[in-house]
Design a protein around this nucleic acid. Structure first.
Length: 214
DNA sequence: ACATTAAGTGATT
DNA sequence: AATCACTTAATGT
């Protein structure tokens, strides 16, 4: 594995990984490029790896048995999917779908190394705990959003979140996709977007939304 | 030029 | 906020 990968592992993750740990990740991990739209892990599938996100953005969503989906949060570089940690104790099926928003680069590490690294590396332990913490906070935020916010506010929050993880003000999407993500109808999204545009918060184009009011 | 897909809108529940 | 039914606009072939 090349040094660029190691530099990314060193630079993007909040807890400075020890050089030795970075070498271990580099030696045992598999670097994968995931194209926009590809699914990294899916609901009801077994997962035996943990992804470390080096580049790109993933959308994490849950789906009910009727196929209604709802986006819970986004992952950006330096993030990992905390829900996969659970599987290192007990091989459980994934409850979520993780899908690439844009082209992504990840390092996949087998869960077999987890036990070992947790005791061996302080930075790894801290990182895992911190990741859990962040995800729990995100979950609470998602629940609050669903329970207390009306659709217009949810929509604006969604656009801001998405623009933030993409590090761009321009989002390439359709009203239909947003409707799926928020589990509402396209008509509602179109109307609310129009309203936001009239308020000067966004600019609408076909397949593209400029977020002004970040 | 035509077909397809995305987006806008009034009316109704 | 959802649904229907329809229109208009943008884009692909």
């Amino acid at each position: 594995m090349d040094n660029i990968i190691k530099e990314k592992l060193k630079g993007f993750f909040t807890f400075q990984f020890e050089d030795e740990l970075i070498n271990e990740i580099a030696n045992t991990g598999e670097v994968r490029l995931i194209k926009a739209g590809e699914i990294l892990m899916d609901i009801n599938h077994h997962v035996n790896f943990v992804p470390f996100l080096l580049q790109g953005v993933f959308k994490v969503l849950s789906e009910d048995k009727n196929g209604n989906e709802i986006v819970m949060y986004f992952l950006e570089r330096g993030d990992t999917c905390a829900s996969t940690f659970i599987n290192f104790v007990n091989t459980e099926k994934s409850k979520i779908r993780v899908i690439a928003e844009i082209d992504c680069e990840v390092v996949l590490v087998s869960l077999d190394h987890f036990d070992n690294w947790m005791v061996k590396y302080k930075s790894f332990r801290s990182y895992v705990i911190e990741s859990y913490n962040i995800r729990i906070k995100e979950m609470i935020e998602a629940i609050d959003t669903l329970a207390f916010m009306q659709m217009d506010q949810r929509l604006l929050k969604y656009l801001r979140d998405r623009a933030q993880v993409l590090r761009e003000t321009s989002i390439s999407t359709t009203h239909q996709e947003i409707a799926y993500d928020l589990n509402t109808s396209r008509v509602v999204v179109s109307r609310l977007l129009k309203q936001l545009e009239n308020e000067g918060r966004i600019i609408l184009n076909r397949n593209r939304i400029e977020v002004i009011d970040l």
